[in-house]
Nucleic acid binder design. Structure first.
Lengths: 196, 196
DNA sequence: TGAACGCGTAGACAGTGTCTACGACACTCT
DNA sequence: AGAGTGTCGTAGACACTGTCTACGCGTTCA
């Protein structure tokens, strides 16, 4: 009588339910009690594994960071050897993630809902940022600018596009269809126009 | 016996209190009942002027947008005649606002807390964005890129830097001291290196 | 067999946003 | 002048939230 796929322990089931829920209903729907309800347990049960609401939300968000890091890694690996193409792929996968998993993306950067505010930034974002710095350094070796600075600015640009596009603040600038021109503009700006 | 400066009506007093509160305690402290408490009225009183919690928060956020637009306008006006310097001033005032009024900045871009999600974007951001497009167009007339696209990308970059720096995600890239290099990098990237 | 313990239940508590009925007050109209 | 009519704020209820606590049920170990 396996109603749910498998009882892999309540801890991970709560996180699973949270991931489902945030996709369906957004970050605002992630109440402790609603998650417990959907997991089929009482409202006090999560407390055994997650001492506070924030810790549960943080565990859910960590799934998002892992997923994003995985996608970005694949995108980079698929363009092996061409740093510029790798950067483009990284940017595209980031933006794609933000627009596809809106609820999760919202949660991941709602620092008031996450604890210690460096659960994913220090663990998954930091190596990702390091590879970004490397790619920037090799993609434009001639430039005198520090790769760390360029990478940081590009990172922020990417994030800003994802965020603003996600809630419709940039559509009036570009037209409603496609954020791709913005993405290309950002890459060209920070990396120099594409060599062809 | 004027305990508070002047009774200019409860409506505006609620917004005043909200602006104070968000500066002191952050966006999370802006509960309807706490605002009413600080204004010295019962928890049901705000409902006469703001039908919902979101509408009150939106009125508070509007103050922030007005303030930001005013600062940006002054910054631009102070550099009359030099588009590039105007853009730099605009960018600096934006970042400065975000880092000085952290609570307000947080509220202004918490779209889940604001109603109709275009209270300030359509009313104050849109003309500001229009002038940004103009400045970009005149600051780099030689470039073939569409000014709307460049302005949108720069806008997003600015916002991303403000956001990420605000919660400490970029300090590891640049060092803890100053976001200025990031800002200069973004401007140089989107507008071309500064002519000197 | 009996004790200990992991694990989830259930109720309480303070806090929230929203809704409703109710008063105090001022102002107008005949 | 007196009655009626609005405006404006109060106060209580309701459902919901996160956290805390005491309580059981079941298994496991000695």
């Amino acid at each position: 009588m396996a109603e749910r796929e498998q009882d892999t322990g309540l801890r991970s089931r709560l996180v699973d339910v949270g991931v489902e829920l945030v996709d369906e209903e957004g970050a605002g729907a992630l109440s402790l009690r609603e998650i417990a309800r959907r997991a089929g347990v009482s409202h006090g049960a999560p407390r055994r594994y997650f001492p506070t609401h924030l810790s549960l939300l943080s565990a859910i968000a960590r799934r998002g960071f892992e997923s994003l890091a995985a996608r970005a890694g694949e995108a980079i690996a698929a363009q092996e050897g061409d740093p510029r193409a790798q950067l483009t792929a990284l940017a595209r996968s980031w933006l794609d993630f933000a627009l596809t998993n809106r609820g999760m993306f919202e949660l991941m950067f709602r620092h008031d809902l996450l604890e210690s505010n460096q659960l994913g930034l220090r663990e998954t974002s930091l190596p990702l940022f390091a590879t970004l710095v490397d790619l920037v350094a090799t993609a434009r070796p001639e430039s005198g600018a520090e790769p760390r600075i360029v990478a940081g600015a590009l990172w922020a640009n990417l994030h800003g596009i994802a965020q603003l596009w996600g809630w419709g603040s940039l559509q009036l600038a570009v037209g409603d269809d496609d954020p791709e021109p913005l993405l290309r503009a950002a890459l060209d700006a920070h990396l120099g126009p594409e060599a062809r």
